[in-house]
């Protein structure tokens, strides 16, 4: 019971409120009506007392009324949800359904949350041809759409650095370039995203094992387990991790309904996220969205364990390199010049 109460009153703590910070009082009421409390606690005990407490909480919230956070903090089920690796198939089904319903209620969009498992004997790797990349950043946008990334304030997994000719030094580079004509003279371009390190410092840093390396090499985050301490953000040498400082908002017409539980399903404020090599696509044999969007053909992706794959040929025949090799993170993301 105590936990139920907390789940209501501490709504701000992890509230999935879609309009954080700037909704009117009317918004509260709307929320209360849309998601009646009974619906949330049916399975979880003493409803009457809960309703009483909930009533008090609603009154308190209405009194505060300064913000857009209604009583839709973590529900009891959300609060008690276990770590991904402890979930049974039955649990997962319930959770996926809950997420789908939640998205439906918030945005009216019908989504499908699934959880494709890593494929046997597959280890992914990525290679990027720096000779042809012209810095157009289509990959950045395609990634944002594919992975349901918010535009305002912007979260992007891929950062394209405009490098000075003759320099590999990041301090001379900038991700904030606006150009009519790309590539600009005396510049070259280096897209950086999560390198899915084989020896990932971010995973070591996490105090609660909310992030880990999957058998196919992809480093994932359980958004329902992350406590938002940002230790992994500090530990990542490639600036690949993004923290949700704001409650992310995606316009309904931009939501990608094909959602992986460990990749592009809805996140809420207070948790960390990152590139997952589009595992909801790649584990089903498709290519990552960034690769498909790239007009220059700079991006190559595939199964490292398949001797006939393009990625394998590139790594074997081109002079590839990885970033910050001295840190022994063993990235699965290679760069090369052709």
């Amino acid at each position: 019971m105590a936990k139920d109460t907390e789940s209501v009153e501490s709504c701000g703590t992890g509230c999935g409120c879609a309009s954080a910070g700037h909704a009117s009082e009317g918004h509260h009421h709307a929320h209360v009506e849309e998601t009646p409390f009974e619906a949330r606690v049916d399975e979880h005990g003493t409803r009457r007392m809960f309703l009483k407490l909930a009533g008090a909480a609603v009154a308190a919230t209405a009194a505060v009324a300064a913000t857009g956070c209604g009583p839709n903090g973590p529900t009891a089920a959300e609060f008690l949800q276990q770590h991904y690796k402890k979930l049974t198939d039955e649990d997962k089904k319930k959770i996926f359904a809950r997420i789908e319903e939640d998205t439906k209620a918030r945005t009216g969009v019908t989504t499908r949350v699934n959880d494709p498992p890593p494929l046997d004997g597959v280890e992914y790797a990525y290679a990027l041809n720096l000779s042809v990349c012209n810095g157009n950043r289509r990959c950045v946008e395609a990634c944002a759409r594919e992975n349901n990334l918010p535009d305002d304030p912007e979260i992007r997994y891929i950062r394209v650095l405009e490098m000075e000719a003759g320099s590999l030094e990041f301090e001379e580079a900038t991700p904030y370039y606006a150009r009519e004509k790309l590539p600009a003279r005396d510049k070259w371009y280096m897209p950086v995203q999560c390198h899915q390190c084989d020896n990932p410092p971010c995973v070591r840093a996490c105090p609660v094992q909310a992030t880990w390396k999957e058998p196919d090499g992809i480093v994932v985050v359980d958004y329902s387990w992350c406590i938002g301490c940002r230790f992994c953000v500090v530990a990542c040498p490639y600036y690949a991790r993004r923290f949700n400082f704001f409650e992310p908002e995606i316009p309904p017409d931009r939501i990608n309904p094909n959602q992986g539980y460990l990749s592009n399903r809805p996140r809420h404020k207070g948790v960390v996220e990152k590139c997952t090599f589009c595992l909801h696509r790649t584990r089903k044999g498709r290519m990552p969205a960034c690769l498909e969007a790239c007009p220059t053909g700079a991006r190559k992706f595939g199964n490292l364990n398949d001797p006939d794959s393009e990625i394998r040929k590139i790594i074997e025949s081109k002079r590839v390199f990885v970033l910050k090799e001295d840190l022994a993170t063993l990235p699965r993301f290679y760069y090369f010049f052709s």
């Binding site: 701000g12 954080a20 949700n244």
Partner: peptide
């Protein structure tokens, strides 16, 4: 800060 998240701080990525 609980309401608006850590955006209430000046921290960024």
């Amino acid at each position: 800060q609980l309401q608006v998240g850590l955006s209430a701080t000046n921290m960024v990525d």
